[in-house]
Design a protein around this nucleic acid. Structure first.
Lengths: 116, 116
DNA sequence: TATTGACTTAAAGTCAACTCTAAGTTATAT
DNA sequence: ATATAACTTAGAGTTGACTTTAAGTCAATA
């Protein structure tokens, strides 16, 4: 799959895809004889994972950390699990903050701006 | 209330409080004869609101927009309500994204890293 | 009176995460 | 054969949201 197709499929720009590769979140992606990227199914799975986690606010740094551990093999499984649990906790707290703000907006809209 | 007390109460740095004031999210805060800030109850309410919304990811720009409308008085109530509804929708979508990522982390932790 | 520490300002610096630019190569259509 | 469009790279630039710096004022204490 070409970079264009991937960027359309996942709604990420070519630049972002190359940037993710440069910082080591994906790939290195295989290239054909003229140097053009050809993404594999595994690349796509990774992109989808990264996109999901990024959209939830996980930093590139922490994703990179996880992916580097992954590349080191089985011996890092425990450490990876700890990392995921840590991030899950962070996410939970962030969701709670957002729920709070959401309810506050609800209240403002329904009570303060009721008849507007 | 001094900037130090406010910064401790809301866990925001002095710098952040002055920055919020500079960009127009709060104040202008009243100052005593020697130029030192003295926050009122209304300032504190505003700070608390801004903190809540910022922690949920609303941009400084959009908060500024809301606050500027507020300062224009009653005639902007409808517009303010629209703005809040828009931001509520954005927030809802973001919460959904985060829930998705949260569940994915749950799954990974419980299934993939079950015995680790 | 001198020093300490909290405050003040404007402006420059930082950081994460892209995003754009410049200069170049390659594939396809006319 | 030439124009067009899509790709490539390294590196510079942008944006949002602070954060730090430099230079100074002021109040309280030794």
């Amino acid at each position: 799959m070409t970079i264009k197709e991937v960027s359309e499929k996942y709604d990420l720009t070519n630049d972002t895809l190359r940037y993710y590769e440069k910082v080591g979140l994906i790939g290195p992606v295989k290239k054909n004889k003229s140097g053009i990227r050809d993404y594999t199914e595994d690349d796509l799975k990774r992109i989808e994972f990264v996109k999901c986690m990024r959209s939830a606010g996980l930093s590139i740094e922490v994703l990179k950390e996880y992916i580097d551990l992954f590349a080191e093999g089985k011996k890092t499984e425990k450490e990876r699990k700890e990392l995921l649990k840590r991030e899950r906790e962070n996410l939970k707290k962030k969701i709670e903050k957002m729920q709070e703000a959401y309810e506050r907006l609800n209240y403002k809209i329904d009570v303060f701006y009721k008849d507007k």
